[in-house]
Amino acid sequence: MTFVHGKNTFISLNGVNLSTFVDTSDLDLDSDEHDVTTYGKNSHVVQGGLLGGKATMGGTYDNTAGTGPRAVIKPLRGTVVTLIRRPEGTGAGKPQDSVAVLVKNYKETNPVADMVKWTCEMTLSDDVTSTTQ
């Protein structure tokens, strides 16, 4: 086993590879939690429920026509599309997560003394398909 650097991460949305525009991304997998504690217990007892989660990504704004983050993501707000994320990059034997996501938010931030940045927030819809490339 080895530690893995984040620089090779692959991420695509709706079939468009956005990796070279992205400098941070998260895939946050969680589940509902139901409290099933009964009388007589000294501690909470919980049970898992439906799975869910959210994903985020962000990076430096690029105005490349057709494939830049603004051109790709902004029109997808409110729609459910496929997110593919490869946390160790692309290569045989490496893991891949594929999941439908609702594109909830696309945000651009313009600091006066730095590059224009962007972020995107997505809510997972249905199961995450985890495979080996």
Partner: peptide, 9 residues
Amino acid sequence: FDKAYSRGA
């Protein structure tokens, strides 16, 4: 180096 994934920037 590596201001974006996959040698992007």
